[in-house]
Nucleic acid binder design. Sequence first.
DNA 1: AAGTTTGTAAAATATATATTTAACGCATTG
DNA 2: CAATGCGTTAAATATATATTTTACAAACTT
Lengths: 182, 182
Amino acid sequence: MAASHDEIAREKLEEAKGYVIETIAETMDVYGVTPAAGKLYATMYFKEQMNLDEMREELGMSKPSMSTSVRKLQENEMVKKKFQKGSRKHTYAAEKDFFHSFMSYFCQLWDREAKMNMEAIKHAEFTLDQIFEDENVSSELIEEAREIYEQLEQSKVYYRWLERLVASIRSEEIYEFLPKNP
Amino acid sequence: MAASHDEIAREKLEEAKGYVIETIAETMDVYGVTPAAGKLYATMYFKEQMNLDEMREELGMSKPSMSTSVRKLQENEMVKKKFQKGSRKHTYAAEKDFFHSFMSYFCQLWDREAKMNMEAIKHAEFTLDQIFEDENVSSELIEEAREIYEQLEQSKVYYRWLERLVASIRSEEIYEFLPKNP
DNA sequence: AAGTTTGTAAAATATATATTTAACGCATTG
DNA sequence: CAATGCGTTAAATATATATTTTACAAACTT
């Protein structure tokens, strides 16, 4: 038949996309999303745009699952809402620039880690200071407190570095050191 | 009583450590470990070394839980086994250099992501090549395949960047661009 | 070699997370 | 303003993950 070549080609095309979709979905756990969201992003990666019903259809999953998945992906800036006139349905498009997803996700992650720990350290150092202020505390305890204090100070070096890393990624300065395409 | 000042100081010391332990444990999900492993690492962070029974005692959890947690932490190179003569018990020490943990964990993560996706892309491009080789495929399909091919080529830029990032962290070159202590 | 101690594997339980089904509210349309 | 369509929330179910209990094997002790 006449269409045979095209049919085979179509199959191969879908097969080729299939490999990549499967693997992207598999490695999406890195970005802290559910399996459904992983499959969804991977699927959208090869589409111009999709609405919730198309997602449901394509993945064979429930609509609320698509709804929550797409929201999570939006939080990570891996999916953007597209404003589409005429239709009442919301349409979404995958962010295809992996650099952007990397930036958005890891910066958020590290920011949180650095901020929370810096805050805890501040708290802890404040409490330790109260020990140092008391003249009647034994030198053994003072020494022990001083060691902890020192350890906390040391760990701040890391958290500050993390914050600078985040800043250099957000500002894209990092690409001066490590070009996208060397 | 005479010990009162020391007792208060001891309390404050434990309180200070407590803040930090709690927060480290909380942010350890970043490193893909269970709550038990998170608490364990955070606890060990303020100890010279610990054996399984001390961990069980300190955290009030079962020994197998400590055993699996400590193994997971070893995989991430956040805990090292110490060889201690005389005792039959295995003892472990927390890696206190967060830079090392960062390096070990994220490099492992990104390496896997890059390798798996590069492999899938290779596979997919091989399959797409078969479409291009067939003279009888419609130009529409060829065009569609070419677009996918182009998209895959583009994504390789990111995965290669990720690999270079990993290399620059492992080699510590990154600290030339972003010093630990500027 | 029998008896302990230590660490871990396997099975059972508990807990948390993901997904679906059912139901609701809002906006748009006829 | 009733009726329909769309997205989301809430409750129910299913699934996966974490932890404990039980059981065992290896290494050491006596």
